[in-house]
Structure formats: structure tokens, C-alpha cells
Amino acid sequence: MGRAALWGLLIGTTLMTTLIMFGFATSPENGSGVPLVASFIASGMFGVVMGGIPGTLIGLVVGAVRRRPQPVLPPPPPPPLAPPPPMHDRWAAMVGRCELAVRRVGAAVATVPPSPARDWLERIAGQFGGELSDVRRIADLARALGADHDHPVTQRLTAAVRDFTSFEDEVGRVALQLLNQASLDKVRTHLEVLEQQLPHLGNG
């Protein structure tokens, strides 16, 4: 703060002294032969009063502003917790096999040319994918209970894997027939039988 006040005094005095001396030099009444030294001293005195003191005050204000403590920012929030790693146990593996069957069924349906028969097959595939939520709930229950191989929950999940795998094979056979016979009348029976073979875990 003291250095800022000193600079303010020096700059204010210098500027005001220069202006006053310039006024003396250009004044028409300056022909009386006033000594240069006397003019400089008088200009310096006026410069201190009229420029130095205001400059000092300005320097004090600037110094106070610069020395004002910076606001303390709050610490950054901690990074979000990483999601828990995926579970790798036998129940997760069984759910993964059912999910794979659903993906393969969707890929098989996508190979069938557009037709009313394909629309029907797509509806069946959508119902098939909807059964995954029940598979996951059964797996969560088995995990929570720590069910062994002979536990009814484990047996239920094993049967679900078997049903999903079998249904995947049946969809493949029907999709192959639709590639050769796009007429709905010719494949209606196959689609009706396939729809009856859908796993219904929620009703099991």
C-alpha cells in the first residue's frame, strides 16, 4: 500500500507541476522576467498540493484494493463415485445367456424380408425380449439367497436358460421358412406354434 501511495504522490506532483509550468510559459503576462527557478519552485509547491495529495489518496485506494484478500473458494466437489463393477457370478452368466438369445432372435428377425409374416414375428420377438426382466429378478433373488444348485430358485433360472435357448432355435427355423415363403397363409401355423412356445416366466 505504501508503494502505491508513493507512486501516486510522484505521478500526481509531476503531472500537475508540468501543467502549471506549461501555463506559466504560455501566459501572455510572463514577459515580466520571472526567474525560471522561482517559477519551478512555485510550480512544484502547487503541484504537490494540487496533484501530489490527490495522487497519494488515489494510490492509497488502489493499494487497498490490490491488498484486499481474495475470497476463499469452496473446495471442488468430490468426483462422482464410479458405478459398481458388473457382477461376474453364475447367476450373471445365466442372465447373460438369456440376453444373448434375445439379441440373436432380433438379428434373425431382421434378416426376414418385410411382410405381414415378419410383422407377426417381430411382435413375438418383442414379447420374448420382455421376459428378460423376469429372468433378472429371478437371478437377483438367487444371488440374495446364495442359492445352491439344488435350490428351487436356481432350478427356475436354469429352466429359463433352457427355454430361452430352445426358443432361439425355434425362431431360427421359422425365420428360415419365411425366407422361402413370405405368404402369411403358408406360415401362419408355424407362427401360431411359435407364439405358444414363448417363455412365460411371470406365470411360471
Rank of each mutant, 00 (worst) to 15 (best):
P54M: 04
V72K: 11
R68P: 02
G146D: 03
L81V: 12
R104G: 01
A125H: 00
G52K: 05
L178I: 04
L132F: 02
F40Y: 12
P86W: 05
F167T: 02
P77E: 11
G23C: 05
P74M: 10
L198Y: 04
R118T: 02
G33M: 07
T14P: 01
L100E: 14
L10F: 14
L198A: 01
W120V: 10
D119A: 13
R97Y: 10
G106N: 10
S27L: 07
C98T: 03
P75T: 13
L73N: 12
L157S: 02
D163I: 01
G202W: 05
H149E: 15
E192S: 07
V161S: 09
P113T: 03
R136N: 08
T13M: 13
I138Q: 04
V105I: 04
E99A: 10
R188Q: 07
V193Y: 04
G2E: 11
T165N: 10
R137H: 13
G204N: 07
L15C: 14
L15T: 12
P54R: 05
R67F: 09
A110N: 14
A147T: 09
G44Q: 10
Q177R: 11
V193M: 12
V153D: 08
A117G: 09
V161Y: 00
F164D: 02
L198M: 02
G146A: 06
G129I: 07
G172K: 06
V187E: 04
D150A: 11
G59F: 00
V102L: 05
L100Y: 11
A101Y: 00
R137M: 11
W120T: 14
G51Q: 09
A147Y: 07
A160F: 07
Q127C: 06
N180K: 11
W91C: 08
H88A: 13
L157M: 06
L145A: 10
P74Q: 10
R173C: 05
L184M: 09
D89E: 13
A101K: 03
V187T: 13
G130M: 09
P152S: 07
A25D: 14
A4R: 05
G130P: 02
E170D: 14
S39I: 04
L179V: 05
A125Q: 03
A93Q: 11
V102I: 09
E192H: 08
M1V: 09
G51F: 03
M94D: 08
L6K: 01
Q70Y: 05
V153E: 09
L10S: 08
C98V: 03
R66P: 00
F128V: 09
D150K: 08
G146L: 06
P83W: 08
T13P: 02
L194W: 00
L36D: 10
R173E: 15
P152F: 06
P114A: 12
H200S: 12
I11H: 07
P28C: 11
P114W: 08
